[in-house]
């Protein structure tokens, strides 16, 4: 392994650790606001991982939309439903924990098994600096190759907007 690759592995390790740690805390924290903040940690670490994987534009979008908008909406949801701030003992369905754990682990096991069979032999990724103009290619791809789904997604967002307004307003 070259030095560069070692650095990459280290960065990946840090990002992965933060993602997993944040994720586990999101689903285990007994304080709802903290769970939201751990979600920020996970999402931000994911953005870092995207940078490492040469997808800077996606990383920027990740920060803008997920950390900037989605988490803020979730915090608004917490606030508007007057969730108790601070330690809340009944955030979990206690009796479901064991079954949730079983389901998660079974799923992880199955997926790991499949992935291992098919992708274990893939050689190390080549992570050289991206070509300039990668974002241009992405823009072209979005607005030329995928323009129909792009328009469809805009319709989905519009109807989500209207639907959310219709549902959330007091009649």
């Amino acid at each position: 392994m070259s030095n560069q690759q070692v650095v990459q592995v280290i960065i990946f390790g840090i990002a992965a650790a933060l993602i997993i740690f944040g994720g586990i805390r999101v689903v285990t924290a007994q304080n709802i606001v903290r769970a939201a903040l751990y979600l920020v940690l996970t999402l931000a670490a994911t953005a870092g991982l995207f940078v490492l994987l040469l997808a800077e534009f996606i990383a920027a979008v990740q920060i803008l939309i997920y950390v900037g908008a989605v988490v803020v909406i979730l915090l608004f949801g917490i606030m508007l439903t007057r969730a108790p701030i601070g330690l809340t003992p009944d955030l979990d369905n206690e009796s479901a924990r064991i079954w949730g754990l079983v389901a998660g682990l079974v799923f992880l096991g199955v997926v790991t098994f499949v992935l291992w069979r098919h992708f274990a032999s893939v050689p190390a990724l080549e992570l050289s600096a991206p070509d300039s103009g990668a974002n241009e290619a992405l823009g072209r791809s979005l607005l030329v190759d995928w323009v129909a789904p792009f328009e469809a997604v805009s319709m989905v967002l519009l109807s989500a907007l209207i639907g959310a307004l219709a549902m959330a307003r007091k009649d």
Partner: peptide, 9 residues
């Protein structure tokens, strides 16, 4: 489901 999924004691 009772064995795996249904969350009851």
């Amino acid at each position: 489901v009772n064995g795996v999924g249904v969350m009851t004691r």
